[in-house]
């Protein structure tokens, strides 16, 4: 049995091999470079708040993709970390008067802690059960967000001050805030890229492809699963905490389960298990929500249709298809 499995999993790891030791391949370097130049110019082309929203969701989707695409675990409760962190960061900035970077750190740390607890419980189940368990825990976080005194219930935490970065650089202006958000999200995405292409990332892929084999090779699978869960929750939290600084608000929308569904949709649409897929998916969905907002409930319907088509006909996602054409991992 073990031999057969090894044979089946072999080519997959071989595919990834070139990307591993010698740092980033040229193609990825080029894409990240072009992306950065584009993002530097973006706030002068579109409404900066919209651009910041796209970046926050891109980081969120990338963090989610770490868990689903590379860890093979479908969490249906990632809103808990995204929204939970946004509450903590908003509270830190508004009530404790922390500077933006410390507020974001506080939110991120809270998400990591939440991820540790929920992750430790959830990885006891697999597959569909895992999805449902994470969903139920996220719902618990939702009710806590509704009822804990510091979250402001239905009102949320409003009028969060934008503060001065490191206590020195004022971020009240949309453009200066934009570059702060760009640094955070771009840095976060690069960090996730590093994780995926580290030895840890390789083990994750091995577990995803064939868990029994990884166990027989002597890996403590549960520890790896927990670690990837916590990492994913942490970066989802980083995205949520940053978003709360942009919109100066933390609200129930970000902890609601429909947000968990949205990030699944972004990843699925862009291409799960690819590097750039979540970014494309997030940009596509946020843009659609923004420009089709006038259609009201039709936005939900269109999202549902994308889901159905994605699952039935288009499981590789946009970047997955491009990657197949180019015959290179993206």
């Amino acid at each position: 049995m073990a031999m057969n499995d090894a044979g089946a999993a072999g080519p997959k790891t071989a595919d990834d091999a070139p990307a591993r030791p010698a740092g980033m391949p040229m193609l990825h370097k080029a894409i990240f470079g072009i992306l950065l130049i584009f993002l530097l110019a973006l706030p002068f082309l579109v409404y900066p708040i919209f651009a910041m929203k796209v970046m926050c969701f891109a980081l969120f989707a990338a963090a989610f993709n770490l868990l689903l695409g590379f860890g093979g675990l479908l969490s249906f409760g990632h809103a808990a970390y995204f929204g939970g962190a946004s509450y903590v960061a908003a509270h830190a900035a508004k009530v404790w008067g922390l500077t933006p970077e410390l507020s974001v750190l506080a939110g991120t740390a809270a998400a990591a802690f939440l991820g540790l607890i929920i992750g430790a419980l959830s990885i006891r189940r697999q597959g569909i059960y895992f999805a449902m368990v994470t969903l139920a825990f996220a719902q618990m976080v939702y009710f806590l967000s509704l009822q804990l005194p510091f979250t402001g219930g239905e009102d949320g935490i409003q009028s969060v001050p934008r503060g001065d970065l490191f206590g020195l650089i004022p971020l009240q202006d949309n453009i200066s805030l934009y570059f702060f958000v760009l640094a955070v999200t771009f840095g976060g995405i690069l960090f996730l890229y590093r994780i995926v292409h580290s030895p840890f990332g390789q083990v994750l892929k091995a577990i995803r492809e064939n868990e029994p084999r990884a166990v027989s090779l002597g890996y403590n699978v549960n520890r790896y699963k927990l670690l990837v869960f916590v990492l994913s929750a942490t970066f989802a939290g980083l995205a949520g905490a940053t978003k709360s600084q942009v919109f100066q608000l933390a609200s129930l929308t970000d902890v609601h389960w429909s947000m968990s569904g949205e990030v699944v949709l972004m990843t699925l649409l862009g291409g799960m298990g690819t590097i750039f897929g979540p970014l494309v998916g997030a940009a596509a969905i946020v843009t659609m929500q923004n420009y089709l907002a006038t259609l009201g409930a039709w936005v939900t319907i269109i999202q549902g249709v994308i889901f159905v088509i994605g699952v039935l006909l288009f499981r590789e996602g946009i970047v997955g298809v491009i990657s197949r054409w180019l015959k290179r991992p993206l």
Binding site: Y47, I49, E154, G156, F247, L249, S251, L252, T253
Partner: peptide
């Protein structure tokens, strides 16, 4: 929803 309302208001003014 406060988040939706404040986003619209901000965008309306900006």
């Amino acid at each position: 929803k406060p988040d939706i309302g404040s986003n619209i208001a901000r965008q309306w003014y900006d």
